[in-house]
């Protein structure tokens, strides 16, 4: 297992957002997190690289391990944690800089300045993000002139540039058209050879297409998790069945 979550509880002030969540995230697999809005899936995703630490009133108990090490240990280096566990958000959040500078932003933060090395990282990251052929002749152009789908793949390239081990994706296709969505889905299939991927999605067909495992959240609880084929053909819990078949949500 790449990550192990045990009896995780999370509170926003008095409001409990996650209740007793235990889940194992297998290495080099794609896990989809599904559930209606407000069920806690994005909150859960953000606990995996401690993004919730940035919110004042959050209180967390339980345990999250990355390769057996406690993610919430007092001496955990958060910069290093977020390098190992990278995140792609719902909407592309590029910097108003060139394509090249966006890709290597994280590398510069980590102190890398060797031009030859940075050039290599840019090409490798853009190739992994299936974007190199589209932008290789305009690396110095502003990233803001790219299409939405290209921008999202550039965000993925930017995360890959710092060589993470786990990729967290929070509805990465929700702002994209169908063709761009398919490109991201194909990319996810490629990337799982090297990375562990956890993806929040509202698109049931996307979860069925791209993930190996699916976890269903409802009202802050993990209702059911299993291999995706089972969840989408024979879920055990009626609440899961009612949600994935669109009976509510």
């Amino acid at each position: 297992m790449k990550m192990t979550i045990s009896n995780l509880n999370l509170y926003y002030g008095e409001q409990q957002a996650l209740a007793g969540v235990s889940l194992e995230i297998p290495r080099n697999r794609v896990m989809a997190l599904i559930g209606p809005s407000g069920c806690g899936k994005s909150t859960f995703l953000r606990t995996l690289n401690r993004m919730n630490d940035l919110i004042d009133c959050v209180r967390i108990d339980g345990r999250i391990e990355l390769d057996g090490a406690n993610v919430y240990a007092d001496d955990m280096d958060l910069v290093r944690l977020r390098k190992r566990v990278g995140m792609v958000f719902q909407r592309p959040n590029l910097f108003p800089m060139s394509i090249y500078e966006n890709v290597i932003y994280g590398c510069r933060v980590h102190g890398l300045s060797d031009k030859k090395r940075l050039d290599e990282i840019v090409e490798k990251s853009l190739r992994r993000a299936a974007l190199w052929e589209e932008v290789k002749d305009r690396l110095d152009d502003s990233a803001m002139g790219m299409s939405g789908g290209q921008q999202q793949r550039l965000c993925i390239a930017r995360v890959l540039a710092v060589e993470p081990e786990v990729l967290l994706m929070d509805e990465p296709c929700s702002a994209l058209d169908p063709i761009s969505t398919m490109k991201i889905e194909e990319l996810v299939q490629e990337l799982k050879q090297e990375y562990t991927i956890v993806m929040v999605t509202h698109n049931m067909q996307q979860a069925a297409r791209v993930s190996d495992y699916t976890a269903f959240f409802l009202n802050g609880k993990l209702i059911e998790h299993d291999v995706t084929d089972t969840i989408f053909t024979n879920p055990h819990d009626k609440k899961t069945e009612d949600y994935i078949t669109g009976r509510f949500g």
Binding site: A208, F232, T233, P235, T245
Partner: peptide
């Protein structure tokens, strides 16, 4: 409708 689970059955 892309039926799944019991609906697909």
């Amino acid at each position: 409708q892309q039926p799944i689970a019991h609906d697909l059955r």
